[in-house]
Design a protein around this nucleic acid. Sequence first.
DNA 1: TTAGAGTCGATTGCATCCAATCACAAGAAA
DNA 2: TTTCTTGTGATTGGATGCAATCGACTCTAA
Lengths: 216, 216
Amino acid sequence: MVLVSDNDSATSHAIADDLKEKILAGKYKPGARLIQDELAIEFKASRSPIREALRMLEADGLVTIKTHSGAWITELNFAEFEELYQIRERVEPLMLRLSIPHLTTKLIKELEATLEKLNEATSVEQFLKLDREFHLLTYEGAITSYLGEIVQRMWNTTQPYRRRYSQILEREHFTSAHLEHTLLMKAIKRADLDDAERILYGHIRRTRLELQEQAE
Amino acid sequence: MVLVSDNDSATSHAIADDLKEKILAGKYKPGARLIQDELAIEFKASRSPIREALRMLEADGLVTIKTHSGAWITELNFAEFEELYQIRERVEPLMLRLSIPHLTTKLIKELEATLEKLNEATSVEQFLKLDREFHLLTYEGAITSYLGEIVQRMWNTTQPYRRRYSQILEREHFTSAHLEHTLLMKAIKRADLDDAERILYGHIRRTRLELQEQAE
DNA sequence: TTAGAGTCGATTGCATCCAATCACAAGAAA
DNA sequence: TTTCTTGTGATTGGATGCAATCGACTCTAA
Protein backbone atom coordinates (compact mmCIF):
# COMPACT_ATOMS: atom_id res chain seq x y z
CA MET A 1 0.00 0.00 0.00
CA VAL A 2 1.11 3.54 -0.69
CA LEU A 3 1.31 6.04 2.09
CA VAL A 4 2.49 9.11 0.27
CA SER A 5 0.16 10.95 -2.06
CA ASP A 6 0.31 9.82 -5.68
CA ASN A 7 1.38 12.58 -8.03
CA ASP A 8 -1.95 13.01 -9.72
CA SER A 9 -1.78 16.08 -11.87
CA ALA A 10 -5.51 16.82 -11.73
CA THR A 11 -6.31 19.90 -9.69
CA SER A 12 -9.25 18.24 -7.97
CA HIS A 13 -6.85 15.69 -6.51
CA ALA A 14 -4.37 18.37 -5.50
CA ILE A 15 -7.14 20.27 -3.72
CA ALA A 16 -8.35 17.10 -2.00
CA ASP A 17 -4.84 16.26 -0.80
CA ASP A 18 -4.23 19.76 0.48
CA LEU A 19 -7.55 19.94 2.30
CA LYS A 20 -6.98 16.50 3.77
CA GLU A 21 -3.66 17.55 5.22
CA LYS A 22 -5.18 20.66 6.74
CA ILE A 23 -8.07 18.76 8.26
CA LEU A 24 -5.78 16.14 9.79
CA ALA A 25 -3.54 18.87 11.15
CA GLY A 26 -6.59 20.24 12.92
CA LYS A 27 -6.58 23.46 10.90
CA TYR A 28 -10.25 22.89 10.14
CA LYS A 29 -12.19 21.93 13.24
CA PRO A 30 -14.72 19.07 13.24
CA GLY A 31 -18.17 20.42 12.51
CA ALA A 32 -16.87 23.41 10.58
CA ARG A 33 -18.73 24.23 7.40
CA LEU A 34 -17.00 24.26 4.03
CA ILE A 35 -18.40 26.68 1.48
CA GLN A 36 -17.62 25.91 -2.13
CA ASP A 37 -17.15 29.53 -3.19
CA GLU A 38 -14.75 30.26 -0.36
CA LEU A 39 -12.71 27.17 -1.15
CA ALA A 40 -12.72 28.12 -4.83
CA ILE A 41 -11.20 31.49 -3.94
CA GLU A 42 -8.73 29.94 -1.51
CA PHE A 43 -7.49 27.42 -4.08
CA LYS A 44 -7.80 29.79 -7.03
CA ALA A 45 -9.97 27.38 -8.98
CA SER A 46 -13.59 27.08 -10.06
CA ARG A 47 -16.20 25.23 -8.08
CA SER A 48 -16.14 22.11 -10.28
CA PRO A 49 -12.86 20.70 -8.98
CA ILE A 50 -13.83 21.81 -5.47
CA ARG A 51 -17.01 19.77 -5.68
CA GLU A 52 -15.06 16.74 -6.87
CA ALA A 53 -12.51 17.15 -4.12
CA LEU A 54 -15.29 17.29 -1.53
CA ARG A 55 -16.69 14.04 -2.89
CA MET A 56 -13.28 12.41 -2.58
CA LEU A 57 -12.93 13.62 0.98
CA GLU A 58 -16.41 12.29 1.68
CA ALA A 59 -15.21 8.89 0.52
CA ASP A 60 -12.26 9.29 2.92
CA GLY A 61 -14.72 9.98 5.71
CA LEU A 62 -13.25 13.40 6.37
CA VAL A 63 -16.17 15.41 5.08
CA THR A 64 -19.92 14.94 5.26
CA ILE A 65 -22.06 16.22 2.40
CA LYS A 66 -25.77 16.95 2.65
CA THR A 67 -27.69 17.53 -0.58
CA HIS A 68 -28.73 21.13 -1.24
CA SER A 69 -27.29 22.02 2.10
CA GLY A 70 -23.52 21.89 2.19
CA ALA A 71 -20.39 20.16 3.37
CA TRP A 72 -18.98 19.92 6.87
CA ILE A 73 -15.85 18.51 8.44
CA THR A 74 -16.96 15.13 9.77
CA GLU A 75 -17.69 15.20 13.45
CA LEU A 76 -17.68 11.88 15.27
CA ASN A 77 -19.97 11.53 18.23
CA PHE A 78 -18.90 9.23 20.99
CA ALA A 79 -20.93 6.24 19.84
CA GLU A 80 -19.35 6.50 16.40
CA PHE A 81 -15.92 6.69 17.95
CA GLU A 82 -16.59 3.51 19.92
CA GLU A 83 -17.85 1.77 16.80
CA LEU A 84 -14.81 2.74 14.78
CA TYR A 85 -12.46 1.52 17.45
CA GLN A 86 -14.26 -1.82 17.62
CA ILE A 87 -13.79 -2.17 13.88
CA ARG A 88 -10.14 -1.19 14.21
CA GLU A 89 -9.63 -3.85 16.88
CA ARG A 90 -10.75 -6.52 14.43
CA VAL A 91 -9.36 -5.20 11.20
CA GLU A 92 -5.95 -3.78 11.96
CA PRO A 93 -4.56 -7.01 13.44
CA LEU A 94 -5.49 -8.66 10.13
CA MET A 95 -3.70 -5.93 8.22
CA LEU A 96 -0.64 -6.42 10.40
CA ARG A 97 -0.75 -10.18 9.81
CA LEU A 98 -0.85 -9.66 6.06
CA SER A 99 1.95 -7.13 6.28
CA ILE A 100 4.63 -8.71 8.48
CA PRO A 101 5.71 -11.48 6.08
CA HIS A 102 6.43 -8.86 3.40
CA LEU A 103 8.30 -6.29 5.48
CA THR A 104 11.72 -5.68 3.96
CA THR A 105 14.81 -5.08 6.08
CA LYS A 106 14.78 -1.51 4.80
CA LEU A 107 11.25 -1.03 6.12
CA ILE A 108 12.16 -2.59 9.47
CA LYS A 109 15.05 -0.13 9.80
CA GLU A 110 12.70 2.72 8.98
CA LEU A 111 10.29 1.41 11.60
CA GLU A 112 12.99 1.32 14.25
CA ALA A 113 14.09 4.83 13.40
CA THR A 114 10.51 6.08 13.64
CA LEU A 115 10.01 4.26 16.92
CA GLU A 116 13.13 5.90 18.35
CA LYS A 117 11.91 9.36 17.38
CA LEU A 118 8.47 8.48 18.71
CA ASN A 119 9.95 7.49 22.06
CA GLU A 120 11.63 10.88 22.27
CA ALA A 121 8.52 12.85 21.35
CA THR A 122 7.56 15.48 23.88
CA SER A 123 4.73 17.48 22.32
CA VAL A 124 1.28 16.16 21.51
CA GLU A 125 1.45 17.13 17.85
CA GLN A 126 4.81 15.44 17.46
CA PHE A 127 3.54 12.27 19.12
CA LEU A 128 0.39 12.22 16.97
CA LYS A 129 2.31 12.52 13.73
CA LEU A 130 4.95 9.93 14.60
CA ASP A 131 2.45 7.50 16.10
CA ARG A 132 0.47 7.58 12.87
CA GLU A 133 3.64 7.16 10.86
CA PHE A 134 4.80 4.21 12.96
CA HIS A 135 1.55 2.26 12.80
CA LEU A 136 0.94 2.88 9.11
CA LEU A 137 4.51 1.80 8.43
CA THR A 138 3.90 -1.53 10.16
CA TYR A 139 1.13 -2.08 7.59
CA GLU A 140 3.28 -1.11 4.64
CA GLY A 141 4.06 -4.72 3.73
CA ALA A 142 0.44 -5.63 3.20
CA ILE A 143 -0.37 -5.88 -0.47
CA THR A 144 -3.95 -4.77 -0.24
CA SER A 145 -6.38 -2.65 -2.12
CA TYR A 146 -9.40 -2.27 0.17
CA LEU A 147 -8.11 -3.03 3.62
CA GLY A 148 -5.56 -0.24 3.38
CA GLU A 149 -8.24 2.23 2.38
CA ILE A 150 -10.51 1.21 5.22
CA VAL A 151 -7.73 1.47 7.76
CA GLN A 152 -6.60 4.86 6.53
CA ARG A 153 -10.14 6.12 6.56
CA MET A 154 -10.55 5.10 10.18
CA TRP A 155 -7.28 6.74 11.13
CA ASN A 156 -8.47 9.90 9.40
CA THR A 157 -11.79 10.20 11.14
CA THR A 158 -10.62 9.21 14.60
CA GLN A 159 -7.76 11.68 14.54
CA PRO A 160 -9.51 14.20 16.85
CA TYR A 161 -10.01 11.47 19.45
CA ARG A 162 -6.41 10.38 19.20
CA ARG A 163 -5.43 13.98 19.79
CA ARG A 164 -7.51 14.00 22.94
CA TYR A 165 -6.02 10.69 24.04
CA SER A 166 -2.52 11.98 23.42
CA GLN A 167 -3.23 14.86 25.75
CA ILE A 168 -4.05 12.34 28.47
CA LEU A 169 -0.91 10.37 27.66
CA GLU A 170 1.21 13.50 27.78
CA ARG A 171 0.80 13.67 31.57
CA GLU A 172 2.65 10.39 31.96
CA HIS A 173 5.08 11.22 29.14
CA PHE A 174 3.51 8.63 26.80
CA THR A 175 5.08 5.74 28.75
CA SER A 176 2.29 3.14 28.37
CA ALA A 177 2.16 3.73 24.64
CA HIS A 178 5.92 3.48 24.43
CA LEU A 179 5.88 0.10 26.17
CA GLU A 180 3.27 -1.31 23.82
CA HIS A 181 5.04 0.06 20.77
CA THR A 182 8.28 -1.55 21.89
CA LEU A 183 6.57 -4.90 22.44
CA LEU A 184 4.93 -4.64 19.04
CA MET A 185 8.25 -3.87 17.39
CA LYS A 186 9.81 -6.96 18.96
CA ALA A 187 6.96 -9.21 17.82
CA ILE A 188 7.28 -7.81 14.32
CA LYS A 189 11.02 -8.40 14.25
CA ARG A 190 10.65 -12.05 15.14
CA ALA A 191 7.72 -12.31 12.71
CA ASP A 192 5.41 -13.63 15.41
CA LEU A 193 2.06 -13.13 13.72
CA ASP A 194 -0.20 -14.28 16.56
CA ASP A 195 1.62 -12.27 19.19
CA ALA A 196 1.74 -9.18 17.05
CA GLU A 197 -1.99 -9.44 16.42
CA ARG A 198 -2.67 -9.81 20.13
CA ILE A 199 -0.53 -6.84 21.17
CA LEU A 200 -2.06 -4.59 18.54
CA TYR A 201 -5.56 -5.68 19.52
CA GLY A 202 -4.81 -4.82 23.14
CA HIS A 203 -3.22 -1.53 22.17
CA ILE A 204 -6.28 -0.33 20.30
CA ARG A 205 -8.68 -1.74 22.85
CA ARG A 206 -6.91 -0.06 25.75
CA THR A 207 -7.10 3.28 23.99
CA ARG A 208 -10.83 2.85 23.51
CA LEU A 209 -11.43 1.85 27.13
CA GLU A 210 -9.35 4.68 28.55
CA LEU A 211 -11.14 7.23 26.44
CA GLN A 212 -14.49 5.75 27.47
CA GLU A 213 -13.45 6.07 31.09
CA GLN A 214 -12.41 9.66 30.54
CA ALA A 215 -15.73 10.47 28.90
CA GLU A 216 -17.77 9.51 31.93
CA MET B 1 -28.94 1.09 9.35
CA VAL B 2 -30.98 1.78 6.27
CA LEU B 3 -31.11 -0.73 3.47
CA VAL B 4 -33.44 0.93 1.04
CA SER B 5 -32.32 3.96 -0.91
CA ASP B 6 -33.01 7.30 0.73
CA ASN B 7 -35.30 9.51 -1.33
CA ASP B 8 -32.68 12.07 -2.21
CA SER B 9 -34.15 14.41 -4.78
CA ALA B 10 -30.82 15.35 -6.39
CA THR B 11 -30.42 13.84 -9.85
CA SER B 12 -26.83 12.83 -9.20
CA HIS B 13 -28.06 10.59 -6.42
CA ALA B 14 -30.84 9.20 -8.58
CA ILE B 15 -28.34 8.37 -11.31
CA ALA B 16 -25.97 6.77 -8.82
CA ASP B 17 -28.75 4.62 -7.36
CA ASP B 18 -29.94 3.52 -10.78
CA LEU B 19 -26.46 2.69 -12.00
CA LYS B 20 -25.74 0.82 -8.80
CA GLU B 21 -28.79 -1.37 -9.24
CA LYS B 22 -27.85 -2.14 -12.82
CA ILE B 23 -24.27 -3.01 -11.90
CA LEU B 24 -25.37 -5.31 -9.08
CA ALA B 25 -27.87 -6.98 -11.38
CA GLY B 26 -24.97 -7.74 -13.70
CA LYS B 27 -26.30 -5.51 -16.47
CA TYR B 28 -22.90 -3.86 -16.68
CA LYS B 29 -20.11 -6.41 -16.68
CA PRO B 30 -16.99 -6.00 -14.52
CA GLY B 31 -14.28 -4.28 -16.50
CA ALA B 32 -16.74 -2.49 -18.79
CA ARG B 33 -15.93 1.12 -19.53
CA LEU B 34 -18.35 3.90 -18.63
CA ILE B 35 -18.28 6.93 -20.89
CA GLN B 36 -19.66 10.13 -19.44
CA ASP B 37 -21.32 11.34 -22.64
CA GLU B 38 -23.07 8.03 -23.20
CA LEU B 39 -24.36 7.96 -19.63
CA ALA B 40 -25.48 11.58 -20.01
CA ILE B 41 -27.57 10.62 -23.00
CA GLU B 42 -28.88 7.48 -21.31
CA PHE B 43 -29.99 9.40 -18.22
CA LYS B 44 -31.03 12.52 -20.11
CA ALA B 45 -28.81 14.77 -18.01
CA SER B 46 -25.62 16.73 -18.45
CA ARG B 47 -22.21 15.40 -17.55
CA SER B 48 -21.99 17.22 -14.21
CA PRO B 49 -24.37 14.98 -12.29
CA ILE B 50 -22.90 11.96 -14.10
CA ARG B 51 -19.45 12.85 -12.84
CA GLU B 52 -20.75 13.21 -9.30
CA ALA B 53 -22.60 9.92 -9.53
CA LEU B 54 -19.43 8.19 -10.69
CA ARG B 55 -17.57 9.60 -7.69
CA MET B 56 -20.26 8.24 -5.38
CA LEU B 57 -20.05 4.83 -6.99
CA GLU B 58 -16.30 4.98 -6.65
CA ALA B 59 -16.79 5.47 -2.92
CA ASP B 60 -19.08 2.43 -2.97
CA GLY B 61 -16.33 0.44 -4.63
CA LEU B 62 -18.45 -0.28 -7.68
CA VAL B 63 -16.55 1.93 -10.10
CA THR B 64 -12.88 2.70 -10.55
CA ILE B 65 -11.87 6.12 -11.84
CA LYS B 66 -8.53 6.92 -13.46
CA THR B 67 -7.66 10.57 -13.99
CA HIS B 68 -7.76 11.76 -17.60
CA SER B 69 -8.58 8.25 -18.62
CA GLY B 70 -12.05 7.17 -17.61
CA ALA B 71 -14.27 5.07 -15.39
CA TRP B 72 -14.70 1.32 -15.36
CA ILE B 73 -16.89 -1.12 -13.51
CA THR B 74 -14.65 -2.40 -10.73
CA GLU B 75 -13.14 -5.74 -11.56
CA LEU B 76 -11.84 -7.78 -8.65
CA ASN B 77 -8.88 -10.02 -9.30
CA PHE B 78 -8.65 -13.16 -7.27
CA ALA B 79 -6.22 -11.76 -4.71
CA GLU B 80 -8.59 -8.87 -4.05
CA PHE B 81 -11.47 -11.26 -3.66
CA GLU B 82 -9.51 -13.25 -1.07
CA GLU B 83 -8.63 -10.07 0.77
CA LEU B 84 -12.20 -8.86 0.87
CA TYR B 85 -13.42 -12.16 2.20
CA GLN B 86 -10.80 -12.14 4.93
CA ILE B 87 -12.05 -8.71 5.96
CA ARG B 88 -15.63 -9.92 5.84
CA GLU B 89 -14.74 -12.85 8.11
CA ARG B 90 -13.55 -10.43 10.77
CA VAL B 91 -15.99 -7.61 10.35
CA GLU B 92 -19.38 -9.14 9.68
CA PRO B 93 -19.43 -11.21 12.87
CA LEU B 94 -18.92 -7.94 14.74
CA MET B 95 -21.79 -6.36 12.85
CA LEU B 96 -23.98 -9.32 13.71
CA ARG B 97 -23.00 -9.06 17.38
CA LEU B 98 -23.94 -5.40 17.44
CA SER B 99 -27.20 -6.14 15.64
CA ILE B 100 -28.73 -9.12 17.46
CA PRO B 101 -29.57 -7.36 20.74
CA HIS B 102 -31.60 -4.76 18.82
CA LEU B 103 -33.52 -7.04 16.49
CA THR B 104 -37.25 -6.45 16.95
CA THR B 105 -39.79 -9.27 16.79
CA LYS B 106 -41.02 -7.72 13.56
CA LEU B 107 -37.56 -7.99 12.05
CA ILE B 108 -37.19 -11.58 13.25
CA LYS B 109 -40.44 -12.47 11.52
CA GLU B 110 -39.22 -10.79 8.36
CA LEU B 111 -36.00 -12.75 8.62
CA GLU B 112 -37.86 -16.03 8.93
CA ALA B 113 -40.04 -15.21 5.96
CA THR B 114 -36.99 -14.36 3.88
CA LEU B 115 -35.24 -17.53 4.98
CA GLU B 116 -38.25 -19.59 3.93
CA LYS B 117 -38.29 -18.02 0.49
CA LEU B 118 -34.52 -18.47 0.31
CA ASN B 119 -34.84 -22.15 1.07
CA GLU B 120 -37.26 -22.52 -1.80
CA ALA B 121 -35.12 -20.62 -4.29
CA THR B 122 -34.32 -22.55 -7.43
CA SER B 123 -32.61 -20.09 -9.78
CA VAL B 124 -29.22 -18.50 -9.21
CA GLU B 125 -30.52 -14.96 -9.53
CA GLN B 126 -33.29 -15.65 -7.05
CA PHE B 127 -30.85 -17.17 -4.58
CA LEU B 128 -28.42 -14.26 -4.94
CA LYS B 129 -31.07 -11.65 -4.25
CA LEU B 130 -32.61 -13.43 -1.28
CA ASP B 131 -29.26 -14.40 0.21
CA ARG B 132 -28.20 -10.76 0.16
CA GLU B 133 -31.54 -9.73 1.64
CA PHE B 134 -31.31 -12.32 4.42
CA HIS B 135 -27.80 -11.46 5.53
CA LEU B 136 -28.27 -7.71 5.37
CA LEU B 137 -31.48 -8.12 7.36
CA THR B 138 -29.59 -9.89 10.14
CA TYR B 139 -27.48 -6.74 10.40
CA GLU B 140 -30.46 -4.42 10.45
CA GLY B 141 -30.43 -4.06 14.24
CA ALA B 142 -26.91 -2.64 14.32
CA ILE B 143 -26.98 1.07 14.94
CA THR B 144 -23.88 1.92 12.99
CA SER B 145 -22.62 4.56 10.67
CA TYR B 146 -19.37 3.22 9.22
CA LEU B 147 -19.56 -0.50 9.74
CA GLY B 148 -22.74 -0.72 7.69
CA GLU B 149 -21.16 1.19 4.86
CA ILE B 150 -18.08 -1.00 4.85
CA VAL B 151 -20.14 -4.17 4.86
CA GLN B 152 -22.42 -2.99 2.08
CA ARG B 153 -19.43 -1.97 0.03
CA MET B 154 -17.92 -5.40 0.34
CA TRP B 155 -21.18 -7.05 -0.61
CA ASN B 156 -21.32 -4.80 -3.65
CA THR B 157 -17.89 -5.53 -4.99
CA THR B 158 -17.89 -9.26 -4.32
CA GLN B 159 -21.25 -9.75 -5.99
CA PRO B 160 -19.74 -11.29 -9.17
CA TYR B 161 -17.91 -13.88 -7.08
CA ARG B 162 -21.05 -14.69 -5.15
CA ARG B 163 -22.78 -15.22 -8.46
CA ARG B 164 -20.08 -17.67 -9.46
CA TYR B 165 -20.32 -19.41 -6.10
CA SER B 166 -24.09 -19.67 -6.41
CA GLN B 167 -23.65 -21.45 -9.69
CA ILE B 168 -21.55 -24.05 -7.89
CA LEU B 169 -24.14 -24.31 -5.14
CA GLU B 170 -26.93 -24.74 -7.64
CA ARG B 171 -25.67 -28.23 -8.49
CA GLU B 172 -26.43 -29.40 -4.97
CA HIS B 173 -29.59 -27.29 -4.75
CA PHE B 174 -27.99 -24.85 -2.29
CA THR B 175 -28.19 -27.40 0.55
CA SER B 176 -24.99 -26.51 2.44
CA ALA B 177 -25.92 -22.82 2.41
CA HIS B 178 -29.41 -23.68 3.60
CA LEU B 179 -28.03 -25.63 6.56
CA GLU B 180 -25.79 -22.80 7.66
CA HIS B 181 -28.54 -20.24 7.24
CA THR B 182 -30.85 -22.33 9.39
CA LEU B 183 -28.22 -22.69 12.11
CA LEU B 184 -27.58 -18.96 11.99
CA MET B 185 -31.29 -18.22 12.29
CA LYS B 186 -31.52 -20.41 15.39
CA ALA B 187 -28.55 -18.75 17.05
CA ILE B 188 -30.04 -15.34 16.32
CA LYS B 189 -33.39 -16.34 17.79
CA ARG B 190 -31.86 -17.44 21.06
CA ALA B 191 -29.62 -14.32 20.98
CA ASP B 192 -26.47 -16.41 21.29
CA LEU B 193 -23.87 -13.83 20.28
CA ASP B 194 -20.79 -16.03 20.40
CA ASP B 195 -22.40 -18.87 18.52
CA ALA B 196 -23.86 -16.57 15.89
CA GLU B 197 -20.47 -14.98 15.35
CA ARG B 198 -18.85 -18.38 14.97
CA ILE B 199 -21.40 -19.70 12.49
CA LEU B 200 -21.20 -16.58 10.37
CA TYR B 201 -17.41 -16.67 10.42
CA GLY B 202 -17.48 -20.25 9.23
CA HIS B 203 -20.09 -19.46 6.60
CA ILE B 204 -18.00 -16.73 5.00
CA ARG B 205 -14.76 -18.67 5.39
CA ARG B 206 -16.19 -21.78 3.73
CA THR B 207 -17.31 -19.73 0.76
CA ARG B 208 -13.83 -18.31 0.35
CA LEU B 209 -12.15 -21.70 0.61
CA GLU B 210 -14.52 -23.37 -1.82
CA LEU B 211 -14.03 -20.64 -4.37
CA GLN B 212 -10.28 -20.85 -3.91
CA GLU B 213 -10.47 -24.57 -4.53
CA GLN B 214 -12.53 -24.02 -7.65
CA ALA B 215 -10.07 -21.46 -8.94
CA GLU B 216 -7.16 -23.88 -9.02
C1' DT C 1 9.63 -6.37 -39.62
C1' DT C 2 10.01 -3.44 -35.72
C1' DA C 3 10.77 0.74 -33.03
C1' DG C 4 9.94 5.51 -32.56
C1' DA C 5 7.93 10.12 -33.46
C1' DG C 6 4.15 12.78 -34.67
C1' DT C 7 -0.73 13.64 -35.43
C1' DC C 8 -5.60 13.48 -34.71
C1' DG C 9 -9.91 12.09 -32.72
C1' DA C 10 -12.24 10.83 -28.63
C1' DT C 11 -12.87 11.77 -23.97
C1' DT C 12 -12.06 13.78 -19.66
C1' DG C 13 -11.25 18.04 -16.67
C1' DC C 14 -12.36 22.73 -15.63
C1' DA C 15 -14.69 27.43 -15.95
C1' DT C 16 -18.73 29.93 -16.24
C1' DC C 17 -23.50 30.83 -16.19
C1' DC C 18 -28.20 29.95 -14.79
C1' DA C 19 -31.74 27.40 -12.12
C1' DA C 20 -33.24 25.06 -7.93
C1' DT C 21 -33.28 24.75 -3.13
C1' DC C 22 -32.81 25.82 1.60
C1' DA C 23 -32.34 28.44 5.88
C1' DC C 24 -33.47 32.31 8.18
C1' DA C 25 -35.84 36.38 9.29
C1' DA C 26 -39.68 39.41 9.20
C1' DG C 27 -44.46 39.94 9.45
C1' DA C 28 -49.31 38.43 10.20
C1' DA C 29 -52.79 35.83 12.67
C1' DA C 30 -54.28 33.32 16.78
C1' DT D 1 -46.17 35.62 23.17
C1' DT D 2 -46.29 31.82 19.94
C1' DT D 3 -46.92 29.81 15.61
C1' DC D 4 -47.52 29.83 10.85
C1' DT D 5 -46.62 31.92 6.37
C1' DT D 6 -44.05 34.18 3.05
C1' DG D 7 -40.24 36.20 0.88
C1' DT D 8 -35.36 36.97 0.17
C1' DG D 9 -30.46 36.17 0.13
C1' DA D 10 -26.94 32.83 0.24
C1' DT D 11 -25.48 28.58 -1.49
C1' DT D 12 -25.68 24.43 -3.87
C1' DG D 13 -26.91 21.64 -8.21
C1' DG D 14 -26.88 21.24 -13.23
C1' DA D 15 -26.03 22.74 -18.27
C1' DT D 16 -22.91 24.14 -21.60
C1' DG D 17 -18.65 25.33 -23.91
C1' DC D 18 -13.80 25.16 -24.17
C1' DA D 19 -9.11 23.49 -22.91
C1' DA D 20 -6.11 19.64 -21.63
C1' DT D 21 -4.91 15.03 -21.99
C1' DC D 22 -4.55 10.38 -23.55
C1' DG D 23 -4.33 6.56 -26.68
C1' DA D 24 -4.41 4.65 -31.00
C1' DC D 25 -3.05 5.06 -35.56
C1' DT D 26 -0.04 6.21 -39.32
C1' DC D 27 4.13 7.11 -41.33
C1' DT D 28 9.09 6.94 -41.44
C1' DA D 29 13.59 5.12 -40.73
C1' DA D 30 16.72 1.57 -39.31
